[in-house]
C-alpha cells in the first residue's frame, strides 16, 4: 500500500478560492469565546487550589 495519496493538480490555484472562507470577524468572535473559557478554567483551578489549601490548613492546624 502506498504511503501517500498523491494527487497531481492541473491548473493554477486561484486566490479567489479562499475569499469565501476568509472572515476575521467570525474568527474574532470565536477568539473572544475561547478566551472567556480559558480565563474561567484558570479561575476554576485557582479557586480549587485555594479551597484545597484552606481545607488542609483547617485539617492540620
Amino acid at each position: 500500500m502506498k504511503k501517500y495519496d498523491i494527487r497531481i493538480r492541473r491548473g493554477a490555484f486561484h486566490e479567489k478560492r479562499t475569499s469565501r472562507y476568509k472572515n476575521f470577524d467570525q474568527l474574532s468572535r470565536r477568539y473572544k469565546k475561547e478566551r472567556i473559557k480559558q480565563v474561567m478554567t484558570r479561575l476554576f483551578y485557582l479557586l480549587f487550589l485555594v479551597a484545597v489549601s484552606v481545607a488542609l490548613f483547617f485539617l492540620f492546624r
Partner: peptide, 13 residues
C-alpha cells in the same frame, strides 16, 4: 487514520 494527501501542481512539479 487516513493516508496523507499530497497535492502537487503539475507545472510546478
Amino acid at each position: 487514520k487516513k493516508r496523507m494527501v499530497i497535492s502537487i501542481d503539475e507545472t510546478n512539479l
